[in-house]
């Protein structure tokens, strides 16, 4: 029995092998480096001779005066991004789905997808111009008779600038995933609903949304791992000293400590802390998806 099955599937397993090796070599072996977060690591001394300090680096992080603020900013910005990135694409997909003019639908789809391909380095340059006090956005606001807003320098506005601009950049991509999910819904269900006299709104509520549910749960599950990822490239390119208070996040802190100050151990400890939290969140959300949405990876 086993032999027969093995013979049938051996080719598949062999094809899988390079991928597994690759994963092992580049994702699991480097995890050995976690060790430096428990050491006082000096490059001159290497892994084996650096002094072992246990949890000292973690204690140091938690005692950093900025740590609470940074943690809060990270969680706040990342959560808001996750929520918006769930709602906005779903609504967009539903609306686009109702559009009958194929040309219009395709153009909109492409246009909203476009910013996804631009790097934050470029977008940040553009946003700085557009959102500056003399920029086009503020000119419009002033044209409407309101006071101009200092989007990139005011602590009340800055996090929302980050959240909204990130959503704008990303939602086109997610929209396409949801649109794909919509095409997977069996048309006979709609036909049956029409015969039963359901309006378009009722159809959306009772057929479309339940039909999309598995993919929504999947997207949510995948994004929950990002609760501590507030988007390094975006924040790093847009923030400045006046908005450290509302915009400094864990990743920018890791960057400053690790790459600017060469405190590799502290930086690694901070990264490990982040990974552990993310790991817990991913596990929990997977368990929930498993239970409530009958979602299975394997």
């Amino acid at each position: 029995m086993f032999n027969k099955k093995w013979r049938q599937e051996s080719a598949n397993h062999i094809m899988l092998l390079p991928g597994v090796l690759f994963l092992f070599l580049f994702c699991y072996v480097p995890m050995f480096g976690i060790i430096i977060s428990f050491q006082k690591y000096y490059p001159t001394k290497g892994f084996f001779k650096s002094e072992w300090v246990g949890l000292e680096n973690f204690r140091y992080i938690f005692e950093l005066p900025d740590f609470n603020r940074v943690l809060w900013n990270t969680v706040f910005i990342a959560s808001a991004k996750i929520i918006l990135l769930l709602i906005v694409p779903i609504i967009t997909a539903l609306l686009l789905n109702e559009v009958r003019n194929v040309l219009f639908k395709r153009s909109v789809q492409t246009l909203i997808y476009l910013p996804y391909f631009l790097s934050w380095v470029i977008l940040a340059g553009i946003l700085m111009d557009v959102l500056s006090l003399k920029g086009i956005v503020n000119q419009m606001i002033e044209g409407l008779g309101m006071q101009s807003i200092f989007f990139l320098g005011n602590n009340n506005w800055f996090p929302w600038t980050l959240i909204v601009s990130d959503t704008w950049k990303q939602f086109g991509f997610d929209t396409i995933i949801y649109l794909a999910a919509l095409t997977g819904i069996n048309p006979t269900l709609y036909e049956a609903a029409v015969i039963d006299g359901a309006s378009r709104w009722k159809q959306t509520l009772h057929i479309t949304l339940p039909g999309m549910a598995p993919i929504i749960v999947l997207m949510l599950t995948l994004s929950l791992g990002n609760v501590l990822n507030a988007g390094f490239d975006q924040v790093f390119n847009l923030y400045s000293p006046p908005v450290f208070e509302s915009g400094d996040i864990i990743d920018t802190m890791i960057y400053r400590i690790g790459l600017q100050d060469y405190q590799f151990s502290v930086s690694a400890a901070l990264g490990l802390f982040k990974s552990i939290i993310s790991f817990v969140l991913v596990s929990v959300s997977y368990a929930m998806a498993y239970r409530f949405a009958n979602y299975r990876i394997f």
Binding site: L64, P65, D66, P241, P242, F244, R256, D261, Q263
Partner: peptide, 23 residues
Amino acid sequence: ADEKMSTLATMQNETFVKIIMNA
């Protein structure tokens, strides 16, 4: 300084800028 200077420098930069900007 190895351990603390960047934190102190960030704090300094932020405080100075906020004071000047009247925040």
